[in-house]
Design a protein around this nucleic acid. Structure first.
Length: 789
DNA sequence: GTGTTGCATGGAT
DNA sequence: AATCCATGCAACA
C-alpha cells in the first residue's frame, strides 16, 4: 500500500486490482500491456499459462510439450491480435525462436506478424542451454506478455513520457535498473516485466556474457528479455538469449550499421515463407555495389554480418554455402574470406547466376534471411526501383523509429516492416539514406570519375583545338585525299600539308604600310586588307571591313592584273600562283596558306614582323617573304646566327608557322621561357654559332635549336626531323615539351639530356639515336625535336 | 586476349 | 585512429 495517495495507480485490465505503477518498488507486480494498461502478475500468469516467453522453458519442458506450447502461443497471439494465424505466425518466435535448438551459434530471429496488416518482427535471442538452465527456476514467474495492437506508434519512451510526472519511474532508479539488462532489448517498444532483483542480476550477468542484438544508441535498455520489433508496435515475444560462447564478436553485431539492417516487406516475407510454417529470421541486407553486381561474381559481405550469421570459417577457402532464393531454388556459393589489414574481408563467391536470376543490379538490395527451424538461408532481392520512394525516411528501414510517425506505413499505404525498434531518429535515417546513396554515388562518380572528368576536360580541350584546326585547315590544291575511317569517322588524309587560313600576299603599299592582298572566295578579286587582319579560310568581299568601298564583289579589283602579276612574280613560285589565279581557284598552295597562317599567328600575338623581314631578302637565294629565322631577324645585324645559304626548306618554315598557330595562345608565355633558356644556351653554344660551313650535323642541329630559340615560334617545329613534312603529331606534345612545369616536358628534356650524354660517350650518331628513341617519329619525344632547356 | 583470383589500396565510416 | 569495404590490379590460368 505504498503510495496509496500518490498518483500512478492503475487497475489490472483483467481483475481490476489496483496496482501502483509509478515506482520501482512495485515494478515487479505488474506487466504493461501492449495495448495499454497493465495487468497484475497473477492475471498475466493465468492468461497465458505459458512460460515466460522471454526465458524459454527448459528443454525438458519444451520437448515434452512443444505442440501444446505452440498452440497456446498461437492462440494467444490470435486472441490478442484478433487475426487469424498466418503461416509464419503459427509458430511465433515465442517458441519457435527458442526452437528448442540450443545452439551455440548466435542467432536472432524476427518474427513477422501480419495482423492488422502490419508487419511484426520479433527478435528472438536464444538462450543457451546453460543459460536456460540457469534461468529455469525463474522463467515461469516472469512472463512477458505483450499485446499486439494496431494502434499508433508508441515507444517505451513515449509511454514513459506519457505518464504523469508522478507516474514516471524514478529516473535514477530506472536508469540503473535498465542498464542492468541486455541492451539489445531496447528494441522492445512496450514491454514490462516483473523482475525480481535476482533475476535482474542474472540478466545483467547475461548481458555481460552474451550477445545482444542491434543496439540502440538512444533508447534505453528495457526491462526483461522481450524483444518486439515492428515499428514500435508491441508484440509479445521473448528474447532467447544465447550464451557468451558464440563465435565472433557478438557484441560487434550490435554495431551493425543501419545500412545492413534488414528491411523486409510483407511481400518479401510472404515470398520467403511461401507456404511453409517456418519462422523467418531476416538477417541482414546489403545494397549491391558495382563490384557486387559485376561479373566477378563476388559479393562482399559486411564483416559483422558474415561473422554473425554465416558459419564460422577459419580458412580463407571458406565453405560452400547453400542459399535458397525466393523461388525455392537452391544456390551454392562459396563463403570465404580474404585476409585484409589484419582482419578479414568476407565474400560470397559465385553469386552472379543468382543475382542475374533475380535480375538485380548495382543499387539493388539483397537480403539474407534464415528460415527456422531448418536454418535454411534465404536470399532475397529488392530492386532499387521498387523500393518505396520514402524508404529510409519511414519505417521501412529496419529499426526506424520516427518520432511522430505513428502510422508505420509508407506513402503508398502499404504497411511497412520494421525490423528493430530502436531509437533511430528520422535524422539518422535520413543520414543513413544519404550515406547509402551518396556512397553509391561516390562509387560511381568518385575518385575514378574524377580522373575521368579531368581526362574529359583535356579531351574536350584537345577536341576544341582540333576543331579549331579543322576549321582553318583546307585541302591543298590539286590534291586528292585518301579517305579512311577510324571508328566510323571518315578522315581525309592528304599527302601534302593542308592549307590553313586564308592565304594572303603580304605587301607594302605605296605609303609604306604593311598590307595583305587577299583573294575573294566568290569573285576572285584581290582586296587589300591590313597586315594584321586575321582572315578566315573562306573570305569574301563582304567581309572586307577595312575597305567598305571594296566590300562588294561587284566593285572593281584594286589591283590591275599587271600589278597582281608583279606582286606574284616577286614570289618564288610565280608560275604556280599565276596558275591559281588564272584558274580562279579557291585553293592556293600550302606555302601561301601557311604563310598566311604564320601571319595569323604572328599577328594574333601582336608580334609585328619587321617590315624588312617581309620585304627584304637577307641572304642570297632566299625568297621574298621568306620567314626563315634569318629573314625575320631584326635587320640590325646583331644576330648572325644563320648560314649564308638558308637551309630551311619552305616546309620547315611552314611547319613553324603551323606550329605558331597551334600554340598561339601559349606563345607569349613560351617566348618568355624560351628567351631565358636561349640566353643560357646561347652562351654555351657560342663556339658552334660561329661556324658557318662544314659544321657537323650536331652543330647544325644545335644551331637550329639556338636559332629557333631566338624565335620561340621556331623552337620546335623548325627542328623537326621530318623535313619537308608537317608533323601534326608533334603539336599535341608541344606544350608538354615546352612547359617547364610539365612532367612530360621535363621528362623529355631529361631523356634528351641522357640521350645526349649517351650519344657523346658512345659515338652513336644523332640520327640513329633519334630512331632508337622514336622509331615512328611520332609523339614529339624525338631527340632532335626536343628543345633543350 | 580474356577471365579469374587473391591481395592491396585508400576513401568512407 | 582504427576499421571497413569498394575497387583496382597484378599474377595467373
Amino acid at each position: 500500500m505504498f503510495h496509496l495517495n500518490a498518483s500512478g495507480w492503475r487497475c489490472c485490465e483483467s481483475c481490476g486490482k489496483r496496482i501502483h505503477c509509478g515506482c520501482i518498488a512495485s515494478f515487479h507486480m505488474f506487466i504493461l500491456l501492449d495495448a495499454g494498461g497493465i495487468e497484475c502478475l497473477s492475471c498475466a500468469k493465468n492468461n497465458i499459462l505459458t512460460p515466460n516467453p522471454a526465458w524459454p522453458p527448459p528443454p525438458h519442458f519444451l520437448s515434452s510439450e512443444p505442440e501444446r506450447m505452440k498452440d497456446i502461443s498461437t492462440r494467444n497471439w490470435s486472441a490478442i491480435t484478433g487475426s487469424g494465424p498466418i503461416p509464419w505466425r503459427q509458430a511465433p518466435s515465442l517458441f519457435n525462436c527458442s526452437s528448442f535448438q540450443l545452439e551455440s551459434q548466435p542467432r536472432m530471429a524476427f518474427e513477422v506478424d501480419m495482423s492488422d496488416g502490419i508487419d511484426r518482427f520479433r527478435i528472438c535471442e536464444r538462450l543457451s542451454s546453460s543459460f536456460l538452465e540457469k534461468k529455469e527456476e525463474n522463467s515461469f514467474g516472469r512472463l512477458i506478455y505483450g499485446k499486439l495492437t494496431s494502434g499508433p506508434f508508441e515507444s517505451v519512451e513515449d509511454r514513459i513520457a506519457g505518464l504523469s510526472k508522478e507516474e514516471q519511474p524514478n529516473p535514477s532508479v530506472n536508469v540503473s535498473h535498465l542498464r542492468s539488462f541486455p541492451k539489445n532489448d531496447s528494441h522492445t517498444s512496450k514491454l514490462s516485466l516483473a523482475a525480481s532483483p535476482p533475476f535482474r542480476n542474472e540478466v545483467n550477468d547475461f548481458d555481460q556474457a552474451s550477445a545482444t542484438l542491434l543496439q540502440s544508441p538512444s533508447l534505453p535498455t528495457l526491462v526483461g528479455k522481450q524483444v518486439c520489433i515492428h515499428n514500435g508496435m508491441d508484440s509479445s515475444g521473448e528474447a532467447q538469449v544465447r550464451n557468451g560462447k558464440c563465435r565472433g564478436d557478438v557484441r560487434g553485431r550490435n554495431q551493425l550499421l543501419p545500412r545492413y539492417w534488414p528491411r523486409i516487406t510483407d511481400k518479401e516475407l510472404q515470398q520467403i515463407s511461401g507456404t511453409s510454417s517456418s519462422v523467418i529470421t531476416p538477417l541482414f541486407e546489403k545494397m549491391l555495389s558495382a563490384s557486387d553486381a559485376g561479373r566477378i561474381g563476388r559479393l562482399v559481405l559486411p564483416k559483422k554480418c558474415a561473422e554473425a550469421y554465416f558459419p564460422p570459417i577459419s580458412q580463407p577457402e571458406g565453405l560452400p554455402l547453400k542459399v535458397h532464393d525466393l523461388k525455392g531454388k537452391e544456390w551454392s556459393f562459396q563463403f570465404r574470406f580474404w585476409p585484409n589489414n589484419n582482419s578479414r574481408m568476407y565474400v560470397l563467391e559465385g553469386i552472379t547466376p543468382c543475382i542475374q536470376s533475380m535480375e538485380l543490379q548495382a543499387g539493388d538490395v539483397v537480403t539474407f534471411s534464415r528460415l527456422e527451424p531448418e536454418g535454411k538461408l534465404v536470399m532475397g532481392g529488392r530492386k532499387a526501383s521498387t523500393a518505396p520512394p520514402d524508404q529510409g525516411d519511414k519505417a521501412t528501414l529496419a529499426g526506424d523509429k520516427i518520432p511522430g510517425d505513428d502510422s508505420g506505413k509508407n506513402k503508398s499505404g502499404e504497411v511497412v516492416t520494421n525490423g528493430h525498434v530502436k531509437g533511430v531518429t528520422k535524422k539518422e535515417i535520413l543520414e543513413n539514406k544519404f550515406v547509402v546513396r551518396s556512397k553509391r554515388k561516390n562509387s560511381i562518380f568518385g575518385l575514378k570519375s574524377k580522373r575521368l572528368r579531368i581526362d574529359n576536360e583535356e579531351m574536350i580541350e584537345l577536341k576544341l583545338t582540333c576543331n579549331q584546326a579543322q576549321g582553318i585547315m583546307r585541302p591543298p590544291p590539286e590534291n586528292v585525299p585518301s579517305v579512311f575511317a577510324v571508328e566510323g569517322c571518315e578522315i581525309e588524309e592528304f599527302e601534302n600539308a593542308p592549307i590553313i587560313g586564308r592565304p594572303t600576299i603580304p605587301a607594302i603599299d605605296r605609303f609604306g604600310e604593311k598590307i595583305q592582298w587577299v583573294e575573294c572566295e566568290d569573285c576572285f578579286k584581290w582586296r587589300k586588307v591590313p597586315a594584321n587582319a586575321l582572315l578566315p579560310s573562306r573570305w569574301t568581299c563582304s567581309e572586307n571591313i577595312w575597305g567598305l568601298d571594296r566590300s562588294l564583289c561587284s566593285t572593281a579589283q584594286q589591283l590591275s592584273t599587271q600589278q597582281l602579276e608583279d606582286i606574284l612574280s616577286t614570289t618564288a613560285d610565280v608560275s604556280k600562283k599565276k596558275k591559281i589565279t588564272e584558274q580562279n581557284s579557291d585553293l592556293v598552295v600550302a606555302q601561301e596558306g601557311l604563310d598566311a597562317l604564320a601571319n595569323l599567328a604572328i599577328q594574333a600575338e601582336g608580334v609585328d614582323l619587321p617590315a624588312s623581314s617581309q620585304t627584304k631578302m637577307k641572304h642570297a637565294g632566299h625568297k621574298l617573304n621568306c620567314t626563315c629565322v634569318v629573314c625575320i631577324q631584326p635587320s640590325d645585324g646583331n644576330n648572325p646566327k644563320h648560314k649564308q645559304i638558308c637551309d630551311f626548306a619552305d616546309s620547315e618554315s611552314l611547319k613553324h608557322r603551323f606550329s605558331s598557330l597551334m600554340e598561339s595562345s601559349e606563345k607569349k608565355q613560351l617566348a618568355k621561357e624560351a628567351e631565358s633558356a636561349c640566353q643560357k644556351l646561347q652562351v654555351d653554344n657560342d663556339t658552334y654559332l660561329n661556324n658557318d660551313i662544314g659544321k657537323s650535323s650536331l652543330h647544325q642541329d644545335e644551331e637550329r635549336q639556338v636559332a629557333c630559340l631566338d624565335d620561340p615560334d621556331e623552337r620546335k617545329s623548325s627542328v623537326s626531323p621530318l623535313k619537308g613534312q608537317i608533323d601534326l603529331n608533334i603539336q599535341p606534345e608541344r606544350e608538354d615539351d615546352l612547359s617547364p612545369g610539365s612532367d612530360l616536358g621535363a621528362m623529355k628534356c631529361l631523356l634528351v639530356d641522357a640521350a645526349e650524354q649517351y650519344r657523346s660517350s658512345s659515338g652513336v650518331s644523332r640520327d640513329l639515336l633519334d630512331k632508337q628513341m622514336q622509331p615512328d617519329g611520332i609523339g614529339g619525344a624525338s631527340f632532335s625535336n626536343c628543345i633543350l632547356p
